[in-house]
Amino acid sequence: MEAAYAITTDGLTKKFGDFIATNNITFQVKKGEIFGFLGANGAGKTTAMRMLCGLLKPSSGKATVAGYDVYTQTESIKLNIGYMSQRFSLYEDLTVSENIRFYGGIYGLTRSAIKTATAELLAKLALEKEAKSLVGSLPLGWKQKLSFSIAIIHNPAIVFLDEPTGGVDPITRRQFWDLIYEAAHAGVTVFVTTHYMDEAEYCDRVSIMVDGKIKALDTPAALKTTFGAATMNDVFLKLAREANQ
């Protein structure tokens, strides 16, 4: 049973002094699932994500990521996850292939493995001609796609994406989601936060966090039915409005 889940949390809580950033959250993410992690600014998404990535020690509660404990096995967690955020993407002053080599090296890929991975990755993104270009000279959309592909270069069990599509044009955004689908299809669990509510619809299941707590968790279709809303945007607004009253 345990093995069916990529992420499990049980009463996960993080306090900063008097402030409870993440309040007693419990959820499971199935293997190979695209899990949307939504919430307003300051709702505690980033804190929760950092705890799951092994960057922040929880105040209480349990959580495992890829079967490893977030208190004691953070090193193993880091080896088994990929991470990409809108802010952190790639080294702008290194070329495309240098970036790939660097990140491959960090995750202990062998030289030959990096070589094959580089060739595959460049072919998939149609970036062969740009292999020797500095990443800084690429358009934003290409950077984001490249960044995602590099985040999963070591075949992690789970990839965490923190607002990966901010500011990107609509076509690139779709192409980015094509990559996510493909990765999920290949068995990678995807844990993603986003501000685009239409993207929430692409997820298998979504959770919505309000003030440190998970207020709703289900498939997009079920959530829309429960809240009697036409779109995920309405679901989100209803939940957030409720919390304000």
Binding site: A40, N41, E163, G166, H195, F236, A240
Partner: peptide
């Protein structure tokens, strides 16, 4: 409204 949540955006 870039990087701001849907509620604040609205």
């Amino acid at each position: 409204t870039t990087g701001v949540d849907p509620v604040s955006r609205k």
